[in-house]
């Protein structure tokens, strides 16, 4: 499809980073720009370089896709609400004397590790600028992980806490909202 090796090389770079349909659309636009420049200057090499310059280099284009991606916005939202969630659940666990619960140490370690991994992955999603597909997968993994962790936490609270404590009024709805936000983030990353 590409009219020049430079155009083909540019599309190869973009193909490795972006979804196939986005690359098809970019290929059409890049080819159109190339043909317009070729008509104007008559030199294929110069036309290809001008078309690529007009489009922006692969890093610029990929960064723009990241910037406008809905799942990146979801990741920012999940990270931004993290401190509130930490305070709400921290207060809930303190008020309900969570240290007296019979939770095996390996489970605590596994939960903590999963939470830290998810936060790390979300930071990576927000900061990433090149690996679009891999970052999108990281977003899916993070969102699903949060759904599981929030689900486990809510289940544990429902089973363990016989007398509700006041911070639960904040923490439980916040977790339910985060589950919904994570579902939306997952859907945005998969479509």
């Amino acid at each position: 499809m590409a009219g020049h090796d430079l155009i083909a090389a540019q599309l190869d770079v973009l193909s490795a980073r972006l979804p196939a349909q986005a690359v098809q659309e970019l290929a059409d636009g890049l080819q159109e720009a190339y043909e317009i420049h070729l008509d104007a200057c008559g030199d294929p090499g110069q036309a290809a370089r001008a078309a690529i310059a007009e489009f922006g280099d692969a890093d610029t284009v990929t960064a723009a896709f990241f910037h406008h991606s809905p799942w990146r916005r979801a990741a920012v939202l999940l990270l931004a609400t993290g401190p509130f969630m930490a305070v709400a659940w921290g207060a809930t666990l303190l008020a309900s004397h969570a240290w007296t619960w019979a939770v095996p140490l390996p489970v605590k370690i596994l939960y903590g590790t999963a939470l830290v991994t998810i936060v790390f992955a979300l930071v990576m999603v927000v900061r990433a600028k090149r690996a679009y597909r891999r970052t999108r997968l990281a977003m899916v993994g993070s969102a699903l992980g949060l759904i599981v962790l929030d689900g486990l936490t809510l289940t544990a609270i429902a089973i363990t806490v016989s007398t509700p404590v006041w911070p639960m009024a904040l923490a439980v709805p916040a977790s339910l909202i985060r589950i919904l936000a994570s579902v939306r983030g997952t859907r945005a990353a998969l479509t």
Partner: peptide, 15 residues
Amino acid sequence: LPTGTVYPALHRLER
């Protein structure tokens, strides 16, 4: 604008 940056903005408007 760099042409390549227009496409993701259009996708966002479409969403």
